[in-house]
Design a binder for these strands. Sequence first.
DNA 1: CACAATGTAAAGCGTTCGTTTTACATCGCA
DNA 2: TGCGATGTAAAACGAACGCTTTACATTGTG
Lengths: 182, 182
Amino acid sequence: MDKRADIIACAASAFEADGFRGIGVDKVLAPSGASTRTLYKHFGSKDGLVLAVLEERHRLFGAHLEAAGKGADPVATLFETLRQWLAEHGARGCMLLRARAEYAAANGEIVALVRRQKDEFRQMIARRVEAALGWKDAGLATQIWLLFEGATAAASVADLSVVDEARAAAHSLIEAAKSHRP
Amino acid sequence: MDKRADIIACAASAFEADGFRGIGVDKVLAPSGASTRTLYKHFGSKDGLVLAVLEERHRLFGAHLEAAGKGADPVATLFETLRQWLAEHGARGCMLLRARAEYAAANGEIVALVRRQKDEFRQMIARRVEAALGWKDAGLATQIWLLFEGATAAASVADLSVVDEARAAAHSLIEAAKSHRP
DNA sequence: CACAATGTAAAGCGTTCGTTTTACATCGCA
DNA sequence: TGCGATGTAAAACGAACGCTTTACATTGTG
């Protein structure tokens, strides 16, 4: 019975739906049934909870990617995992970037955390691009990353097929790169 | 001396820096020197001001695109205008999508407005893709859109060169499309 | 001049915010 | 058995919130 993990999981849904600044701690805690006292024992502050939620969110999506494996096409797997994630959690834009934007002027720790997480994410994509291509291509890796972030953002105002379109674009770019340095 | 426009312009900067829910009307009005009374005369509510800011933001970026013209490469112009915009206004993610996310559960009118604006934006991209290609390609237009949204989001946690990378990717995709149906 | 429109200045409305505090229940372990 | 750790319940804190109101200054136009 890990109350801390329970609070984080329920809080993530609440923040996802109402934003971080737009919801109070009482409503954030309501789904988990925890009291405010327990919140401040575990996290110290609302911002502390936000940090924990972001870390867990990043870890969980990474775990999904690991579980999906790299398969024959490690880049396509990226977008298939994204589509499945969005179908399950709802498409409201990247929670990490949303938090960064809402706390840009209010909490530098959150800004720094998200920057670190995105750097890590980019490196993971670069590794997959190298596996698909046979050699490193930093520019191509960035382009795949942009398609990923674009699909995540766009899915909040369009249907999930944009993720398939991103996957197709990534495939085109990789094929073009292959033909230029075979 | 258009006080209404002045309030909107100053409020846009304030919302950009602190988010929409994370800042009070007093601080939003401070840069323009307007009183809360003037705010409620003009916009009726804080949410009304947000709607006006979003409409102006969408209109202004469209005007920048118009001013830049379509040139020889109407799609490249898209990304060059974006880079210039981000350099001038700062890269904190698309303000429209940020508002949509913050008001997803609180204000359906804002959600609907942003959806309309993004649909309009996609159609403008589709027209540019058709001009560059010589024929319509809805899938390709969506892919270019994803690169645009991806670059806008990514620039908040990376440097502005990601916009150039997005432009390069768009160029690759268009060249590939040309060669497949010449 | 008079009047309507438009603005600022500032106090105050009730509500909600993040946070702290007091009081009490439950459980694993020495 | 007893005690510390961990939890809920609920009240209360000052501050900030969105918004309203009263009072007064400025300005363009009949």
